[in-house]
């Protein structure tokens, strides 16, 4: 029973992190229908920014955290401006392949700078966040992740629902031509969605780095695991991404715990194929309102 509870808690927390990582991905898809294969690399870049600022430049932790997020935001803007804007109007396959190319580029770059070693952040989280309950012990970082994640989710929920810029972003996702006719600055919306997505990705990358250590191979593998998560949740639903993440996380830990540790990493993809065959648009994906 304890083993079960241990797995349950572990699965929930891992899954929540998956969901968090998937949020940025969904944001890009929502605003510009681009599948971002470089998402794992964005996670990694966030984690390495923080690493560089916190351990090498020895900045105070909160400051380093904010600065790393700012760096990710700017990086998102740059990526959109340099690589994606020239492709507006081109067939989708080029855009997708471009993100594949970007992924290889970023990964190579990170490996060239930092190499493939595992780095760890200094210990900085307060011990109050640690939860002990019988045999189960949840390390403080999960508590921190939960708080940060919930905060971001709330912020973005409010942003998209109520702020004008959020509504403009949704309008572009919905009907680009009509948005253009009303004077919505579509280019700014695209840039902003990449910037926000990179920011969210960087944030999840940092949290993942605190838990597992920073390693570009691990982080980019998690970037690919985003796909089963978002397919499960529906490509365009941010709440769905969190739930999909939790389901995948639970699935992984339970397969790892009860069946075989080696099956653990494939199970999400097997589930993915099954879902695609049974319910192609995910559990929470928007049904297309089709009017003729």
């Amino acid at each position: 029973m304890d083993f079960f509870l241990q797995l349950l808690v572990g699965g929930l927390s891992v899954g929540f992190l998956y969901g968090l990582s998937a949020m940025g991905f969904v944001m890009i898809f929502k605003s510009s229908s681009i599948l971002n294969f470089a998402h794992g690399e964005l996670l990694a870049i966030g984690a390495y920014f923080f690493l560089a600022l916190a351990t090498w430049a020895k900045l105070p932790i909160p400051f380093a955290f904010l600065l790393a997020l700012g760096g990710c935001f700017v990086l998102g803007l740059l990526v959109e401006r340099i690589f994606l804007r020239p492709l507006i109007g081109e067939p989708l396959i080029f855009v997708i392949m471009l993100t594949v190319g970007l992924a290889a580029m970023f990964k190579g770059l990170i490996l060239l700078i930092w190499g493939g070693n595992l780095y760890t952040y200094p210990e900085f989280l307060p011990k109050i966040l640690e939860i002990r309950w019988g045999l189960i012990r949840i390390p403080p970082v999960y508590g921190a992740a939960l708080i940060i994640g919930a905060l971001f989710l709330l912020l973005f929920g409010l942003f998209f629902k109520f702020s004008s810029q959020g509504i403009y972003m949704r309008s572009v996702a919905d009907n680009q031509r009509a948005a253009l006719s009303l004077g919505v600055n579509v280019k700014r919306v695209f840039a902003l969605s990449w910037a926000i997505a990179a920011l969210v990705a960087g944030m999840s990358g940092i949290v993942l780095g605190i838990i597992n250590g920073v390693n570009v191979h691990n982080l980019s593998a998690i970037g690919l695991k985003v796909f089963p998560v978002v397919i499960l949740g529906g490509l365009d639903s941010i709440g769905g991404a969190i739930i999909g993440g939790i389901i995948i996380g639970l699935l992984e830990t339970f397969t790892g715990g009860y069946i075989s540790p080696s099956l653990r990493d494939v199970v999400p993809y097997i589930v993915l194929v099954l879902i695609l065959l049974i319910k192609p648009y995910g559990l929470f994906g928007l049904k297309e309102i089709e009017r003729v």
Partner: peptide, 29 residues
């Protein structure tokens, strides 16, 4: 100068009021 497109192109997944708010894009804020 604002054009109303042919064939009524609403933002289908936005509510009526949110649709109207998109109209304020030219004088954001």
């Amino acid at each position: 100068i604002i054009q109303v497109l042919e064939g009524r192109q609403p933002f289908k997944y936005l509510t009526i009021e949110e649709n109207l708010r998109v109209g304020t894009a030219t004088r954001w804020g």
